[in-house]
């Protein structure tokens, strides 16, 4: 077994096994645990276990990405840039899944019987805007060829993008009239969620963050390999 200079392979494999078992239990528990029925919501309340952790994971991921971008700006090595880019990539992917699952959930609850998929609800619009801001990060990266310049410029932009996250995903949607829970005039998560659901919800959040860590570590290994094989300009 070759040693990887930046990844503890033994720890990676241990967490991989834990995450696989953990998430399998979560999927079963999500369907089997009996929950109180609320009208309109019905069984879709179980989406809490899948849709909400997508956003928690996305926020954690872009946090990891921003931290490594700070390291880049403080004169970090190539691995900091690799970690910042890959954490943002996997995190944005979780964000896309969060938006897609939210659209489907809203279609059959908020917009039931009205045939609407997208109605520019502030919560959804802000989330889409957030993903576009991170989309620009990847466009910026692919537009720069000089590795030093790419690392520093994209790190600076990444910190700017990260600074918008609390506002677009938390502060603003809560001040505006939205159908999403936690908005102005709507009860938030802690007020409307039955305690029994927290038995699955919190482990699901931990499980999805673990899953992010696996996919992120895989891509860091891949990117480091690309750097070793193809050199500085391509990784």
């Amino acid at each position: 077994m070759t040693e990887h200079p930046h990844v503890n392979i033994k720890r990676y494999r241990l967490i991989r096994t834990i995450v696989i078992v953990w998430m399998s239990v979560i999927v079963f528990a999500a369907f089997l645990l009996n929950i109180p029925r609320i009208n309109i919501l019905e069984h879709t309340a179980r989406n809490l276990y899948f849709h909400v952790p997508m956003w928690f994971t996305m926020m954690g991921a872009v946090g990891v990405s921003a931290w490594h971008s700070v390291q880049v700006l403080r004169g970090g090595s190539i691995i900091s840039d690799i970690r910042a880019a890959q954490a943002a990539r996997v995190g944005a992917w979780f964000g896309v899944l969060g938006l897609a699952t939210g659209i489907v959930w809203a279609r059959f609850t908020w917009y039931v019987g009205s045939d609407i998929w997208w109605n520019f609800d502030p919560r959804q619009t802000m989330a889409a805007l957030q993903l576009l801001i991170y989309g620009a990060y990847f466009v910026l990266r692919s537009a720069l060829d000089d590795p030093e310049k790419r690392a520093r410029l994209s790190a600076a932009y990444n910190l700017l993008a990260f600074s918008t996250v609390p506002f677009l995903l938390y502060v603003l949607p809560r001040q505006m009239a939205s159908l999403h829970p936690g908005a102005d005039g709507n009860p938030a998560f802690s007020e409307m969620t039955d305690p029994v659901m927290k038995l699955v919800f919190y482990p699901a959040v931990i499980g999805f963050i673990g899953l992010f860590w696996l996919l992120y570590t895989q891509r860091v290994r891949m990117s480091w390999l690309a750097y070793r094989i193809q050199g500085e300009s391509k990784y």
Partner: peptide, 28 residues
């Protein structure tokens, strides 16, 4: 809609889980 809303909307949960599953497959 009739299919998605039947069985107390359990198929909406199935759809959400399927989206995440396909998304993870695409990333891998």
């Amino acid at each position: 809609d009739q299919i998605m809303l039947s069985e107390d909307k359990i198929f909406v949960v199935l759809a959400v889980l399927t989206i995440i599953w396909i998304g993870l497959i695409l990333l891998t």
